[in-house]
Design a protein around this nucleic acid. Structure first.
Lengths: 246, 246
DNA sequence: CAAGTCATATTTGTCTGATAAATAGGATGA
DNA sequence: TCATCCTATTTATCAGACAAATATGACTTG
């Protein structure tokens, strides 16, 4: 269930440069409209050749972050051109401190993605991928008594649902669901104690999917995520999925 | 309402190479696991320098399509690593002939995206973007009597809904919604005649959003898309949104 | 003075060639 | 049989050169 991204791609010099510049862009250090330093200057700044910089900029351009033109230079694109669902972009985003609006938008995306994915998964409840949802759930149960990593288990559960949709266009959305969950983990007291209600909600989702009950699965996911959304709106203490602790 | 992509990026040599190779990959001409020709060979084949080929491959790698390593060469990644929501990738995909399963997955994605986007749009019905939904609807009405392009109007309507969600993560999904609609247009007799029921469904969506009725908007979109899905499943004649002609 | 035209300098675009680094696959040897 | 080493192949990176595009300001002209 590890990230499928090949590590070779991540180790290249040009990818590191893209990562460095990309991070500065999504964190606002370079604002939309700003002109980046010239390729030569960037190469000098990072101590790499111009070709490495150019390859990095091409990667950023392919994610809608920058646009290069002779003489004018390379400018940062408007935010509405950014590929916000790109896995790299999301990982660069995870380095920044989110505001409430940002967290709400993430939850709203989970709402769109996971409700429908769960419904689709229910429609193919015999699939191998559905068994992985149960496996993740068992892991969450084990985590309750300290026999597994609760964060990893929770992540796996939700990623498994998206994958179990069997829809090729859903798969890339595993990245944003993971990012959303990691933000939740970071800004909540996920590890503070037992969260029984949370587990029950997850069980309801699992059983609906296994039973092939698409509408039930949709409703169960919506219920869970609505709790998360409410918690984010209150800005209060919440567990890993955003539910309040008692 | 034109595509926001800067045309400069599209005209570069390395982008053309990426486009050529990317198209061959998503159409299966190069299968996952296949090793691409060497950078030198590709350069010779396309009559460009090695640097242009390398920049192209870096772009493809940043979309999860290929993975390059010394000695082994550049291989095509497994489909589950592809960024299927990337605008470029989708445009390359539009050149191929879809099977029914593919079309169904597109409709299912529209279901996930547009239902939630419409609900979110209803929550901010005063926003400027909501007015653009109405503008697109008026255009659809005008198209009924031949005073506007019905395809463009329909596209604008659905794109406007996604944009009106006000969610930064929704915006990139305009690409897949557009792609899905274009496939619908292509494989249906969109222009064969009047499709009154279609227009009524759109009006119901618009009114629900303007009224701030999130649940109503969700239901109206779901109803429309369910009709599309049914039509695709039957594989029968349908109009631009997949509804059957009478 | 206004507005269009043109020249120039700057920056990206592209090619070529060279060297380094990684590694798959075969050769070698215990 | 298996581990080790060698070597050829391919990508990775750099450097330098020239081409192409274009923003800017100077210049001209009405």
């Amino acid at each position: 269930m590890a990230e499928t991204v090949s590590l070779t791609a991540r180790s290249g010099l040009s990818w590191q440069i893209a990562s460095a510049i990309g991070t500065r862009i999504v964190n606002g250090e370079y604002a939309p409209g700003d002109v980046l330093p010239t390729e030569s200057d960037l190469g000098e700044a990072y101590n790499v050749g111009r070709s490495a910089v150019r390859e990095a900029i091409k990667m950023l351009a392919s994610k809608g972050l920058v646009d290069a033109r002779p003489r004018r230079g390379t400018i940062v694109c408007e935010r509405n051109a950014w590929s916000f669902l790109d896995a790299d972009l999301l990982s660069w985003l995870e380095g920044s401190a989110p505001d409430q609006e940002f967290l709400l938008e993430l939850v709203d995306m989970r709402m769109a993605i996971e409700t429908e994915a769960a419904a689709l998964a229910a429609g193919r409840s015999v699939a191998q991928e559905v068994k992985e949802i149960r496996a993740a759930y068992e892991k969450m149960v084990a985590a309750e008594i300290g026999q597994a990593d609760p964060i990893a288990a929770d992540l796996e559960f939700h990623k498994a649902i998206v994958s179990a949709s069997g829809n090729r266009f859903m798969r890339p959305l595993v990245a944003i669901v993971s990012t959303a969950l990691r933000f939740s983990f970071r800004y909540t007291n996920a590890l503070a104690g037992a969260h029984v209600g949370d587990l029950e909600e997850h069980e309801r989702i699992l059983l609906a999917i296994e039973a092939g009950d698409a509408e039930g699965a949709r409703a169960a996911v919506r219920s869970l995520l609505q709790s998360v959304r409410d918690a984010v709106e209150r800005g209060g203490q919440k567990n890993s999925d955003g539910l309040e602790q008692t």
